[in-house]
């Protein structure tokens, strides 16, 4: 395969990625599609054991969204297969002790954390995930909440061993990839009840997209939000003057979405992604199954209401 066809392929992959994030339905359909070949493969397996040895585990296609930190940094100068392998081993070992659930930017989460400065206690912070980035053991996310009229943001490293528990209280996505604009929005948009009950989604349901549009406070802002092409902001126009609009227009880069090389450099090629997820699939899948079993057990044993 020559380079241009690879580039083209990755571009197609990227396009499909974007579409999948934006819409809610395909996740479900992808699962149903997956189930059909699995069952057929099971049949062939019983018929011919020799072919089953060559068969690789079928990795669900949504893994790259559920476990994005297993993909290394696409910067070519920083890559090394052995380092990446060791890093993945460490991540899996940590995941055996802490359940890191599926979550996205916009999900409402609670993190229980123990600190040396309050030894013997644990602190629990509830907030909305406004960013999730970095890869490998460096993966992190930022939670934001307004507590006692004061906006609070806490950055957590996903593989920090001092984290006791990560819960997802409401699994959903927002219209944007990063929600830093909540810092300049009215406080009610980032205020969440500390004693919030987890909202359970039915099994196999698509992750809902919350299309709420927030209202920004008047200027001054922390960033020039008008230049960032935000979808989740309602009233950006009313705070802008003529010069802001003109400057934003001058700095637009509408051609970037057609820049195939740029996208190629920003992503890991699909073949490599498959290889990486095939390596960690069996362990991740076992962890998922164990988690499901635990959840079922909990629902049977724990009574919801007393008296």
């Amino acid at each position: 395969m020559n380079i241009s066809s690879k580039v083209f392929q990755s571009a197609i992959i990227n396009k499909t990625n974007v579409r999948r994030i934006a819409s809610t339905v395909p996740r479900c359909s992808a699962q149903s599609e997956r189930k059909v070949p699995l069952s057929s493969q099971a049949q062939t397996q019983s018929n011919s054991p020799s072919s089953s040895e060559q068969r690789k585990p079928v990795v669900p296609s949504e893994y790259r969204f559920v476990y994005p930190e297993f993909l290394p940094d696409p910067k070519l100068e920083w890559r090394n297969p052995i380092r990446e392998k060791l890093e993945r081993m460490d991540m899996l070992n940590r995941r055996k002790h802490i359940d890191i659930p599926e979550f996205y930017v916009g999900s409402i989460m609670a993190v229980t954390y123990s600190e040396p400065y309050s030894a013997g206690k644990v602190s629990r912070f509830v907030g909305i995930c406004i960013d999730r980035d970095r890869c490998g053991l460096r993966a992190r996310f930022i939670l934001r909440n307004v507590i006692d009229f004061q906006g609070i943001e806490v950055e957590y490293e996903m593989y920090d061993p001092a984290i006791q528990k990560i819960e997802v209280l409401r699994l959903e996505k927002r219209l944007d990839d990063k929600l830093y604009y909540l810092r300049d929005a009215l406080p009610e948009y980032s205020t969440f009840d500390v004693n919030m009950e987890p909202e359970l989604l039915p099994e196999g349901a698509p992750v809902p997209v919350n299309d709420i549009k927030v209202k920004l406070r008047p200027r001054p802002w922390l960033e020039r939000w008008e230049r960032q092409n935000l979808k989740g902001v309602e009233n950006i126009e009313e705070h802008l003057k003529e010069k802001h609009i003109l400057k934003a227009k001058a700095r637009e880069t509408p051609w970037e979405k057609y820049d195939l090389m740029k996208q190629y450099r920003k992503t890991i090629p699909e073949e490599e992604q498959k290889e990486i997820y095939a390596e960690v699939y069996s362990q991740l899948h076992q962890l998922e199954l164990a988690r499901k079993k635990m959840k079922r057990k909990r629902t049977f044993i724990k009574p919801t209401k007393l008296a």
């Binding site: 460490d90 991540m91 070992n93 940590r94 055996k96 002790h97 802490i98 123990s114 600190e115 040396p116 309050s118 030894a119 013997g120 644990v122 593989y159 061993p161 001092a162 984290i163 006791q164």
Partner: peptide, 14 residues
Amino acid sequence: VHDFKDPSITFAPE
């Protein structure tokens, strides 16, 4: 050093 195979770190009061 914390081994990733070990359970999470908790700080006990002195």
